[in-house]
């Protein structure tokens, strides 16, 4: 469903991705872990077609996303949603307006229907009290949930999550994890999740990939990642200070 073929990307001469390849199957939940600044967000942005690689290809259902024309990108993105790391809610619209925005803009739904859908997601993401607040007035965790709601209302086949549980309390984090699994189970959604939390990763992942210095150094089912012999992977998942990872 999603395939990266030898993707290389430099920013201002600095190599960020140095030949990344992986394939995410339909209905799979694929988790990417890695240190801060290794290019996890950049990887997601490649899948979304927001950046084009210097070399290599990005395929969505066999169609090339990289360097595609505006129409192709729009068509491919129609089945895709991304929960940005910062939420990226439109800052001058209320939470409710933000969530309703993609529905209003698609011009496929009646006013009542939109209200119904929005209310449903406000409720399940526990945002009902914040519905009339502006993004600047709500907490980081609420922003994340509002951003997630804005993606879910569109019923995408593919959801890209950029650290969906970072900054959330443990209970809310488990709730989001549960939601990711529920989307997979009930709607067959394909997900790519970037996360730092190993507990979440083990819980939701069908496969976990670790990005290190621009390359995928591991890509396997959670059990095999847990028992990985690679010292870098071991150090990262156990979070120890001693080990081969260079901390800048």
């Amino acid at each position: 469903m999603i395939e990266l073929v030898n993707v290389k990307k430099k920013f201002d001469g600095k190599i960020v991705l140095n030949g990344v390849s992986f394939k995410v199957e339909r209905g799979e939940t694929f988790v990417i872990i890695g240190q801060s600044g290794t290019g996890k967000t950049v990887t997601l942005r490649h899948i979304a077609g927001l950046v084009d690689p210097d070399e290599g290809h990005v395929l969505i259902d066999g169609v090339r996303m990289d360097y595609a024309d505006a129409n192709t990108k729009t068509t491919l993105r129609e089945k895709m949603g991304i929960v940005f790391q910062s939420g990226a809610l439109i800052n001058w619209m209320t939470v409710e307006e933000n969530i309703a925005l993609p529905l209003i803009e698609s011009r496929k739904y009646s006013k009542n229907k939109i209200e119904e859908i929005v209310n449903y997601y406000l409720r399940i993401l526990q945002l009902t009290d914040a519905r009339n607040k502006m993004p600047a007035e709500i907490s980081g965790g609420m922003k994340k949930r509002a951003a997630l709601a804005r993606v879910l209302v569109r019923n995408p086949e593919i959801i890209l999550y950029d650290e969906p549980t970072a900054g959330l309390d443990p209970v809310m984090s488990r709730m989001i994890d549960e939601l990711v699994r529920q989307m997979q189970r009930d709607f067959g959604v394909t997900s790519v999740v970037v996360t730092h939390e190993m507990q979440s990763a083990y819980y939701i992942a069908d496969r976990i990939a670790m990005l290190y210095k621009g390359e995928l150094i591991a890509c396997d089912v959670p059990e095999n990642i847990k028992s990985s012999k690679n010292p870098i992977v071991q150090q990262f998942i156990t979070g120890s200070i001693e080990g081969p990872i260079e901390v800048q």
């Binding site: 942005r45 729009t74 910062s86 990226a88 439109i90 800052n91 993609p102």
Partner: peptide, 20 residues
Amino acid sequence: AEIGTMKVSEEIDALEMMAI
């Protein structure tokens, strides 16, 4: 300033992802 702020906080990207 307004549009620049939206651009650097990924709001413009978010719009594009929603086909707006």
